[in-house]
Simulated scan of single mutants.
Amino acid sequence: MSPRGVAIPDVRERLFSAAERVLDRADPVALTSRAVTDEADCAKGLLHAHFSGGLDEFVAELVLDRFARTARLAGELSARAGRATVADNLTGVALALLTSTSPKVAGLALARPGAADLVRRALESGAPGFAAVQDSVTGYLDAERQLGRLTEGADTASLALALVGTVHHLLMTSWAGSPDPRDQVERLIVLLCGAVTPP
């Protein structure tokens, strides 16, 4: 355990990662302040010292942090316009989104009304979430359309909605024993690109 009074670098990420490990092993009800700090091997009061709103605030911040990480990842997609294939680029970002956080983390906020309310208010105030991801995918597809790699009339906003909405659905429903979501995503991308890629 970290010695008392010794600063711990990047406390938030240490606690967030510990929470994800707890969730990987157990049901969301197992996620308690004590379980997180035990997993992080730090003082019991550390979580409450950094998240004065308690476990609800911690869960909300964890979800928002993972959403922001996902949005940053999607924001890099536009730089790939004109490189590889459209299908390869979309597959890369979609699979990265699927693995950016655990379904248990995303579902955890829904199971805790206080955390869900904090997440909703943060998203309404402009915190990056799936809407930001969708905007990034739309921007990427617009760039590919300008390069002539998508048909001129391609509805890029609807294509982005179909892809991001599907990934979000699969992320929220991909539990142990369910079909591998990667195969479903890859098949959807083939279908979408086949409809808008010039021959």
Rank of each mutant, 00 (worst) to 15 (best):
A84I: 00
L90Y: 11
K104H: 11
E61M: 04
G114E: 10
T70I: 03
V59K: 06
L77F: 07
F58Q: 12
A84N: 12
T99F: 06
V59S: 06
E61N: 10
G92K: 02
A84F: 06
T101N: 12
L90K: 05
R83K: 15
G82P: 11
P113S: 07
L62M: 09
A60K: 01
P113N: 07
S100V: 05
T99Y: 12
T101H: 13
F58L: 10
G75I: 01
V93L: 14
R80S: 12
D56P: 06
L110I: 03
T101G: 13
T85Q: 15
L73M: 14
D88S: 15
L110P: 00
T99S: 15
L97D: 05
L62G: 03
D88M: 09
E57N: 12
S100E: 07
R69M: 05
R83A: 15
E61Y: 00
G75T: 04
G107Y: 10
A71P: 00
A87K: 07
F58A: 11
L77D: 15
P103N: 13
V93R: 13
V86Y: 09
L110Q: 11
S78G: 11
T70N: 14
L90C: 07
E76Y: 00
A94T: 01
E57M: 11
A81V: 01
E76F: 01
A74K: 02
L98S: 14
L110T: 02
P103I: 08
S100I: 02
S102P: 11
V63N: 11
P113I: 00
D65H: 15
R66V: 01
A87I: 04
D88N: 11
A109R: 06
A74N: 03
S102T: 10
L110G: 12
A94F: 00
P113H: 06
D56Q: 09
V59F: 03
T70E: 13
E76G: 03
T91C: 10
V105A: 01
A109L: 08
V86L: 08
S78W: 15
N89H: 11
L97Y: 06
R80C: 05
F58T: 01
A94P: 03
D65K: 10
L64G: 03
